[in-house]
Structure formats: C-alpha cells, structure tokens
C-alpha cells in the first residue's frame, strides 16, 4: 500500500463522528458598510487614502504624493488610469520583467471595512507578481464595492473565477526586529487607495 492509501486509511479509522457545520448567516448583518470605518482601519494598516470623484484625477494626485520617491517606471493595468504608457510588453514574461517597476496602478473588486483589505485577482493584475514586486502600489476602488466584513466579502466574491486572488491590507510590513514596525519588507513600500465616490 502506498503512503496515500495508508494515510487515508488511518484517517478514516481514527476520525471521530461527523459534527454539523455551523451556520454563518448570523455573521452577515444587512447593515451597510461604513466608508468611515474603512478609511480609519485602512489608514491604521498603513494605507494612504484619497477620495476622488473621477479617475482623471489620479495621475496628478499620484505625481504629487510620490514627488520625492523617484518614480520612473509606472505600470497601470488599465491604460486609462495613467497618462504615461506602461513599458512595452510588461505583461510578457515570467514576472521578472517587472523588477524595475516603481509604481503599479490596479483596480480592486472589493474593499473590506473591518480590516481595510482589498480583493485583487489575476483578472485585473494580469501578472500575479505585479502588486508585490512593484516598489509602490496604488489601488482604485469603487465606494460601492466596500463591504462590512470578510463574511460579506466572500459572499460577494463567490467561487474562484481566476487562478489567483489576494486580499491586500496596507503596504508590506514587518516587526521582526524587536517588534519595531517597518514598512516595506519585501512587497510594496506604500499603498495608496483611491476611493471613487
């Protein structure tokens, strides 16, 4: 008998009686999400929040916010989000073609008020490593896509539509050295969220 069959046999012999799964409906309250909560919690996670009425405001706001950051290479997954074209063929390759990306601009499907997290999938990102390898990250989120909790988020997202999806809450961070919080461990050093009203 191979290991697979041995493990499965041992598990079957040793597992207790099946208990029923709990009902999660009680966690999904119908109360609407609070923009104020999202702003506060996302800022607490280190995100920089800007409210906009129109996406045409984005390039100027980014240039202003990152004026000291020496931004050269900008990759907008939707060309309409930025006024300078992304490098040619940025989608082609194994991800290493993005190692010099300074700023990535992407769209999020969902925002979660209780933890400031944004749901991004391979469909918007096109290249999975983009939001991690880029030095800075900007995310565009419709205010109507903000939900109160993770339960609401999964209800809205449903089953997987793509091969990869990620909740991102703030810039990459670590506190491994004496519990001192440092932003910019391996992923993006900053996260700017544009909330479109």
């Amino acid at each position: 008998m191979n290991s697979r069959d041995r493990i499965l046999q041992a598990v079957k012999a040793n597992q207790p009686d099946v208990a029923t799964l709990p009902d999660l409906q009680a966690f999904i309250s119908p109360a609407p999400a609070s923009l104020e909560t999202f702003r506060k919690v996302a800022a607490g996670m280190g995100s920089h929040i800007l409210e906009i009425k129109d996406e045409s405001e984005i390039p100027a706001l980014l240039k202003q916010y990152y004026s000291d950051a020496n931004i050269q290479q900008v990759v907008a997954t939707d060309p309409s989000l930025y006024d300078i074209a992304a490098p040619l063929n940025w989608q082609t390759g194994d991800g290493r073609q993005l190692q010099d990306a300074d700023l990535a601009i992407v769209r999020a499907q969902v925002g979660v008020a209780e933890n400031g997290a944004l749901w991004l999938t391979e469909a918007e990102l096109q290249v999975r490593v983009l939001p991690f390898i880029s030095q800075h990250l900007a995310v565009v989120l419709d205010q109507s896509a903000i939900v109160p909790t993770m339960h609401h988020a999964y209800e809205r997202i449903g089953g997987p539509q793509t091969g990869f999806g990620v909740f991102i809450a703030g810039p990459s961070k670590t506190a491994d050295i004496e519990q001192s919080l440092v932003l910019g461990a391996h992923g993006a050093k900053s996260l700017t969220i544009f909330i479109k009203g």
Binding site: V41, G44, M45, V112, E114, N115, G116, A117, F132, T149, M150, H151, P160, T162, G163, F164, G165, V166, F167, I168, A169, G170, P171, S172, K173, A175, G187
Partner: peptide, 21 residues
Amino acid sequence: LRLLARSATGQPITTYSSHFR
C-alpha cells in the same frame, strides 16, 4: 481570516492573504 491575525499580532488581518488555485 477574521481570527488569525487578530489573535496572532493584534492586526485586523495580515497584509497579504493569497489564494493560490
């Protein structure tokens, strides 16, 4: 995901919760 990071480090969620399919 609501419980993990809150219990671990007192954050509302980890920065990245990646779903590899």
